[in-house]
Structure formats: structure tokens, C-alpha cells
């Protein structure tokens, strides 16, 4: 039994206090975003609205919808491609180890820690040269490449839990490298794909630095549009909050319905197996 020696009441008190502090920003966003315009004043910022008014949502939606779509076009292919490449790499680096495989893995892994500012200037030049600057496919390429280290790490850790004996048995049955991958490893790693896909989806959806430097106006993903919206002086606070809700909605839904996998991704990406 784990029991920290303070009263149950105090434990609950601390937990509830922090829970209230953590929820407060969410409360304010939601309450503000459903207020009619004449109630969005400083004095009743914390008050519940007298009537629920979704007009700020329709205004925010009108402004953000094209960028929301851009984000969908970006996130779906980038997530699928980076998960597939990560699975292949993880498979090789965990089940077909060769001399220097560990060092090579670290060589790849380093890429996930670098500040992306340190590759941004050549990256943009490169994208201009191959005429992918300011395009969604260009952003997809960028997210697939810089997603490789984390997806490789996650799949490598995941595959480390699949017993080598199963691979050996398949080899004795005459299965080759690709057959083992397709018929044994992939079916066994459906959970792994879910965890990695959720992680990549969340990260790419929320990403800002690449989005703001590689795309302009019409091609910008949602987070850049949200930042522009909040920087604008003429847009009301309720619209900004509704915009923040819209931008956060997909990852919030993923967290609410698939939170278990999200947390597994979080742990898989940080603890080495």
C-alpha cells in the first residue's frame, strides 16, 4: 500500500485545488466563447453567460475553416507516412541488428532533440529549389523527415517486446525479411501504430515553427491562423477564444477518446526501452 502520511482530507484538498487551477483556463475559454458579444466585458469575464450564443463560433469558423482544412491535408498523409517509415526502421533496428546498429540509432535519434531553428535556413532554401516552398506537400515532407527519429524510437521500443523466438520460428518456416514484416510484425503492432499515429497527429497538428516559416497566407495551417487571429486588434475576445477552441478541438477529442494511447506515446517517446 502506498500511503503518504498525511490525512485523506489534505490529500483531496491539494488535488482538488490543483484540479481547479488546471481547469480554470478551460472554463474561461468555453464560457467566453459562448457569450453574446454584449456580455464580453471585463467585469463579467468569470460569469456564466445569460444565454448561450454560438455566433462567435460561426465568426471564428468563417475565418479559420480554410486553415483547418490545410491542417487536415497536412496531418493525415504526414502521420501515415512517418508511422510507416518509423515501423520499418524500428523493425530493422530491433530485430535485424547489425554491428553499429545502436550507434546508428542514436545518430537518428539526435534529430528529435535539435532546435529546428538550426536547420531552418537551409531547409527553406532547399524547399524553394525543389519548388515545394509554401506548399502543403512541402510541409508534409518536412514533418515526415523530422518525425523519423521519434517514430523510429517508438517502434523500436515497441518491437523490443516482441520475442525474438517468434522471428526465429518464422525464419525456420522459410519466411523472409519482408514476409515476416507483413505477416507477423505489422499485425502484432496495431497498438503501436495507434500510439504512434496519435502522437504524430497531435504533434503535427500543434506544430508552429515550420508552419509559420514555410507557408504564407492561403497555405497556412490552423495554428498560424489562430496566432494571426489573436494578434489582430479588431477581433473580439470571444471570437479569439472560439478560435482557440476550434484549433484545439481535434487533439482534444483524440485525448478524450484515446487518452490511454496518448499517454503511452508520451512515455514511449521519453523512456528508452
Amino acid at each position: 500500500m502506498a500511503s503518504f502520511p498525511i490525512g485523506k482530507f489534505i490529500k483531496y484538498f491539494i488535488l482538488i485545488l490543483f484540479a481547479v487551477l488546471f481547469i480554470m483556463p478551460i472554463y474561461v475559454i468555453i464560457v467566453t466563447s459562448i457569450k453574446p458579444l454584449d456580455e464580453v466585458s471585463l467585469e463579467n469575464m468569470w460569469a456564466l453567460p445569460s444565454t448561450i450564443d454560438f455566433s462567435s463560433y460561426s465568426e471564428a469558423f468563417a475565418k479559420l475553416a480554410p486553415n483547418f482544412l490545410n491542417s487536415i491535408y497536412l496531418v493525415v498523409p504526414a502521420t501515415i507516412l512517418s508511422a510507416l517509415l518509423g515501423a520499418m526502421n524500428g523493425y530493422v533496428l530491433s530485430k535485424w541488428r547489425f554491428r553499429g546498429a545502436n550507434t546508428l540509432f542514436l545518430f537518428i535519434l539526435f534529430g528529435m532533440f535539435i532546435p529546428y531553428q538550426s536547420i531552418l535556413i537551409p531547409l527553406i532554401q532547399f524547399l524553394r529549389n525543389i519548388e515545394m516552398y509554401n506548399t502543403i506537400p512541402g510541409l508534409i515532407l518536412v514533418h515526415v523527415v523530422y518525425g523519423l527519429p521519434i517514430t523510429t524510437l517508438m517502434f523500436r521500443n515497441f518491437y523490443a517486446n516482441i520475442p525474438d523466438e517468434m522471428i526465429e520460428a518464422a525464419k525456420i518456416d522459410g519466411a523472409n525479411f519482408l514476409a515476416i514484416f507483413r505477416h507477423l510484425i505489422v499485425p502484432l503492432s496495431i497498438t503501436g501504430f495507434v500510439v504512434v499515429a496519435i502522437w504524430q497527429f497531435t504533434n503535427i497538428w500543434n506544430e508552429f515553427l515550420f508552419a509559420v516559416t514555410i507557408t504564407t497566407s492561403d497555405n497556412q495551417p490552423i495554428m498560424v491562423a489562430l496566432q494571426n487571429l489573436s494578434g489582430s486588434q479588431i477581433v473580439q475576445w470571444n471570437v479569439q477564444m472560439a478560435g482557440a477552441m476550434l484549433a484545439a478541438l481535434p487533439t482534444m477529442l483524440v485525448y478524450i477518446f484515446l487518452g490511454k494511447y496518448f499517454v503511452r506515446g508520451l512515455l514511449a517517446g521519453s523512456v528508452k526501452g
Binding site: 490543483f18 484540479a19 488546471f22 481547469i23 483556463p25 478551460i26 474561461v28 475559454i29 497531435t202 497538428w205 500543434n206 506544430e207 508552429f208 495554428m223 489562430l226 496566432q227 489573436s230 479569439q240 477564444m241 478560435g243 482557440a244 484549433a247 484545439a248 487533439t251 482534444m252 483524440v254 485525448y255 487518452g259 496518448f262 499517454v263 508520451l266
Partner: peptide, 16 residues
Amino acid sequence: IFLFPMALSFVVTGVV
């Protein structure tokens, strides 16, 4: 509740 903000973007956090 405590893990929830992890799913949000730094941009959303910043705006709020």
C-alpha cells in the same frame, strides 16, 4: 485533468 493541457498546442496555450 492534469494531463489534458499536454494535448494542446503551445499556440493555444499562449493565446489563452
